[in-house]
């Protein structure tokens, strides 16, 4: 995890908590770091808080959300920043690749116009054929001809690569990619992730596709009920998860030759109640009495009483 950070840092989150006015405590004291050029995946079930983290990083949470802790993007603090400085930070240091590429593009403009506009906004004057060259490098065949097309004439995978070309135009410190491939098939998903990594930015990848994460991430943080329950090198965590939730999530993922995947029992807890003990305890096959009483801290990158030898 000690990557040299020449020039500027990527994303550094410390003790971030997000509460919504509904009472939901969506993110609970999480810390993480994404260095430039590295990919960190946030994985977990719907409602675990991973998208809230992404929105907090982009400064796009609703004004009514209560945010505590620190989010620094290339050394600029996002939490509590004014709308004007947020716009500056977004413009200079972060890019977004959203889930549905069809919605990221204006249907009335050609794809080329949209990408060129993003480049101009980020202060990069597109040289002749610059956009086409970049898209060619991202594996779009005949980019010059295709750039004149409207978004509906492109496939989802091609559009998502155009979105990456737009998001990476200003060589931001970080690109947030929120389920960027959930609308795509496996081959195209790989192409999109390769394109993302090729930008050289740090990538915060929000995904529920563990196979994809295993292939394309350096690190992974597993989230459950607003907390990080396990963190580590993606290859290691996904090959030999230590937290019972990470194991259960992996067992629920179909893998060739592994038989039918095993669904997790029960459902994730509501986020408006602060559990006295481990939030996963009610669904955990290993849970004992102490698990319901004390919240396990993140110790050696795992938040589990059982793994860390009973209570700390």
């Amino acid at each position: 995890m000690t990557t040299p950070t020449p020039g500027r840092d990527g994303l550094r989150i410390e003790n971030l908590s997000v509460r919504y006015p509904s009472g939901a405590h969506a993110v609970r004291r999480i810390s993480l770091h994404v260095a430039p050029g590295r990919t960190l995946a946030l994985v977990g079930e719907s409602g675990c808080g991973k998208t809230t983290v992404a929105m907090a990083v982009l400064g796009l949470l609703p004004g009514t959300a209560r945010v505590e802790g620190s989010i620094r993007l290339a050394e600029h603090e996002v939490v509590g920043a004014s709308e004007a400085s947020l716009r500056r930070i977004r413009g200079l240091h972060v890019g977004l690749v959203a889930q549905d590429p069809m919605r990221s593009f204006d249907p009335l403009l050609s794809v080329g116009t949209s990408v060129r506009e993003a480049w101009r906004v980020h202060g990069r004057r597109p040289v002749r054929d610059g956009v086409a060259t970049t898209l060619g490098e991202l594996g779009i065949p005949e980019p010059r001809r295709r750039l004149r097309h409207r978004p509906h004439q492109w496939s989802g995978g091609m559009l998502q690569r155009a979105a990456i070309a737009a998001a990476g135009a200003h060589t931001p410190a970080l690109i947030v990619a929120d389920e960027p491939t959930s609308a795509l098939d496996a081959d195209r998903a790989d192409a999109v992730l390769n394109a993302l990594r090729a930008t050289g930015a740090g990538v915060l990848l929000i995904s529920h596709d563990l196979e994809l994460v295993a292939r394309h991430s350096d690190e992974v943080s597993v989230m459950y009920a607003g907390t990080i329950v396990e963190h580590g090198e993606a290859a290691k965590v996904l090959a030999a998860p230590r937290h019972p939730y990470a194991s259960a999530l992996l067992a629920a993922t179909p893998r060739p030759g592994a038989g039918l995947p095993v669904p997790l029992p029960g459902a994730p807890p509501g986020l408006d109640v602060e559990p006295a003990g481990c939030a996963f305890a009610p669904r955990c096959p290993l849970a004992g009495e102490d698990c319901a009483e004390n919240q396990p801290p993140l110790h050696h990158d795992v938040a589990c009483h059982r793994v860390n030898g009973r209570a700390a």
Binding site: L184, A186, L210, A248, L249, A252, T253, L260, L264
Partner: peptide
């Protein structure tokens, strides 16, 4: 979600074991 998807796969496998013929398209 993965867990819900796993449950759906079980439902389908169970239906087939009761003699229902199934055609399924997926990119997974």
């Amino acid at each position: 979600d993965v867990s819900v998807a796993a449950g759906v796969l079980h439902l389908l496998a169970n239906a087939a074991s009761q003699g229902i013929a199934i055609v399924i398209a997926s990119h997974d």
